[in-house]
Nucleic acid binder design. Structure first.
Lengths: 203, 203
DNA sequence: ATAAAGACATACGCGCCGTATGTCAATTGG
DNA sequence: CCAATTGACATACGGCGCGTATGTCTTTAT
């Protein structure tokens, strides 16, 4: 009756990741007690150490899951864009929007780098940056974007939006701050063009 | 013979901050034992809790000290620049250079946000961002830089260089990576100009 | 000179992490 | 079909590190 063991294992792993993700998101990595959230998943710390090695390993698993979701969401966005340039702008704006979510801010943007070190060195390597990087490369080949190292440009741009997102989310008036930040962000992106539009082309 | 008590206190505070700064920089915030580094300063945790409240309070004091140094270093740079635009570029490049230092990376850029939350909400509020912000404002008034919210622009630009710095410092070949990153960074800064130079104006 | 304040040390308890060990079910080979 | 082995997970143990409560001793104030 117990369907194959591998399914039980996958389910256990999923339960642990889900419980940890919730705890990390709400209380932060340091504030989340392994005893507490494993119990909440109906398990003990034994299971956790068996599957993930240690607390850091679990955090990495949680971040990998979140990053996969982010990449998927960006891919969906990329599908429906009129032009390559519009796609690039959409990707960036949506990356910024995702970075506004408290769970992503806390787990991926703040605790992640502190516990696991520089994000660009992570195994999962934040695949969503890759998405933006390849957009830039395509735009350069069409002669739309100025020549520069695509990966470097992608990291600079995502760094800017990441930082801006934290600023927005913690500002006294997030809506007004977001407006200013997105406007400035688009102006900067506009500056990447070989022939910058004199005025902002879109909303 | 013991010169005024206030001097002794200041000395104690300074000793604690120095010892903590060293420990935080080498072992990270979480890995630094308060018992260890207070002992190294010839004191105990009692003194620490008396002056700083808790471990987070001490981290804040350390970051405040580092930020003051960074601001000072930027101010010196700002003094010797041919043009306002050149000053702005110098500030950014030097901000990036500072962000390459391991101590700043670990304490200010990684552990700080994790423990104290979003940097833009810190009491010290990273004064160095303010320096860059006012440069942008001045350049806009001269009609050199495109119109946008100066603070937003400053945060985007510092976010980009901060992120890029971590990428560089942790890259397998930091020198080559730095070259690509700085080149791309200058191209992006160039895009802020009302009349962008066709080719990069300086080295 | 005595009282009050404050700087700092000592002592205690508790939470939390990692490891070592144990148990029981599920697979595998004959 | 039945050992023997593997591996998933629980339990038990030890230790470290933080925060607090308390104590002592010096300095300032009156």
């Amino acid at each position: 009756m117990h369907r194959p063991r591998s399914e039980m294992i996958a389910e256990t792993r999923a339960k642990l990741i889900t419980a940890a993700r919730k705890a990390f998101g709400e209380k932060g990595y340091a504030g989340a007690s392994m005893d507490d959230f494993t119990a909440e998943a109906g398990l003990t710390r034994g299971a956790l150490y068996h599957h993930f090695g240690d607390k850091k390993g679990l955090l990495l698993a949680v971040i990998t899951e979140i990053d996969a979701e982010m990449t998927e969401r960006l891919a969906v966005i990329s599908g429906r864009a009129a032009s390559r340039w519009q796609r690039f702008v959409d990707q960036n704006v949506n990356y910024l929007k995702m970075a506004l979510e408290p769970e992503i801010q806390r787990i991926v943007l703040r605790d992640g780098p502190s516990v696991l070190g520089d994000p660009s060195a992570w195994p999962t390597a934040l695949n969503c940056v890759e998405v933006i990087s390849s957009s830039i490369k395509a735009l350069q080949e069409e002669g739309i974007v100025r020549q520069m190292d695509p990966e470097a440009a992608a990291r600079l741009v995502t760094g800017a939006s990441t930082y801006a997102a934290q600023w927005i989310a913690n500002a006294p008036d997030p809506a007004a701050t977001a407006e200013k930040a997105v406007a400035a962000f688009k102006t900067i992106l506009n500056g990447l063009l070989v022939s910058p539009a004199a005025t902002d082309p879109d909303c």
